[in-house]
């Protein structure tokens, strides 16, 4: 592997790792606030699995010489992060310790859209030319099955409940799609990721995502809003929400850097 190729591989791994890391963090903020106790258990279990997935990607980064996995997760600054903007967005106004006014419809739509995209990406990674990544994808896929089932159930049930719920879901879908444009993007590493056959073309993946989502939306009589990109997270461009998340996450880690998390 040339140095340029190693960097392209690292870029892809950072995208995958940072996505699951922030996704897990936003999920964990719902602890104690989810609509009911069963959901509290489910959400935190999914967040825990996802944090486990992030940890494995950081581990693969450590193995290609990027530094210690724990440090990669916790001390990199916002402009070094390659996660999609979608997963860094706050759950709603307020902090979870103080007057949280979190939006459950947004959580459900974001989690469903993200998990469906993760499924498409993981299926592609199973065929990656980088063998350790392909093997990890096989393992993650087995856990993902349950996450997708869970969020798809919430998504369809909320859309089929009251008129108010439907309006909230529509508004959430609008916001999620406004940030969705960088999710399948590979940013500056696109060309090498393609040449090295690390993962399939973003257009191919996006088509698969639409194909998987369309029958669900048709059943619910929902029209998908236009997809946009506010920032390209894959190139280190982020909303201010990411800084806040990182300082909270970093606080715990910097208290005791030798602790196992």
């Amino acid at each position: 592997m040339t140095e340029a190729e190693r960097l392209a591989l690292a870029s892809l791994l950072y995208q995958l790792a940072d996505d699951d890391f922030l996704y897990a963090y936003r999920g964990s903020e719902w602890l104690g606030l989810a609509p009911h106790i069963e959901e509290d258990v489910a959400s935190s279990s999914i967040a825990q699995d996802s944090m486990g997935h992030a940890a494995m990607y950081y581990q693969l980064l450590e193995e290609i010489g990027e530094g210690k996995a724990d440090a990669l997760a916790h001390v990199r600054l916002a402009h070094e992060r390659k996660n999609s903007v979608l997963v860094e967005r706050v759950n709603g106004p307020g902090y979870y310790m103080e007057n949280p006014e979190y939006d459950w419809a947004y959580a459900v739509v974001r989690n469903y859209c993200y998990t469906l995209a993760k499924k498409v990406r993981i299926d592609s990674l199973k065929k990656s030319s980088y063998a350790p990544l392909a093997a990890l994808a096989v393992k993650i896929n087995m856990e993902l099955y349950y996450h997708l089932l869970h969020w798809q159930t919430w998504f369809t049930q909320l859309y089929q409940s009251t008129e108010t719920a439907r309006q909230k879901m529509d508004a959430a879908l609008e916001r999620v799609l406004a940030d969705f444009g960088d999710l399948f993007d590979y940013g500056e590493a696109t060309q090498l990721i393609d040449e090295m056959q690390l993962m399939e073309d973003q257009g191919v993946l996006l088509d698969r995502w639409y194909q998987a989502l369309t029958p669900v939306l048709v059943d619910l009589n929902v029209t998908l809003p236009e997809m946009n990109m506010t920032y390209n997270g894959r190139n280190g461009e982020h909303s201010p929400d990411l800084n806040d998340a990182l300082s909270t996450l970093g606080e715990v880690y910097l208290l005791d850097q030798s602790a196992v998390w």
Partner: peptide, 28 residues
């Protein structure tokens, strides 16, 4: 009852025959 139980690998179920709640290990 809940796909996600007290640990990552378990779900919570209810038996409609003997009316007992129980847990199941998720197939992987």
């Amino acid at each position: 009852e809940n796909l996600f139980g007290p640990t990552a690998c378990r779900s919570i179920l209810y038996c409609k025959s003997c009316k007992n709640p129980f847990e199941a290990m998720k197939p992987v």
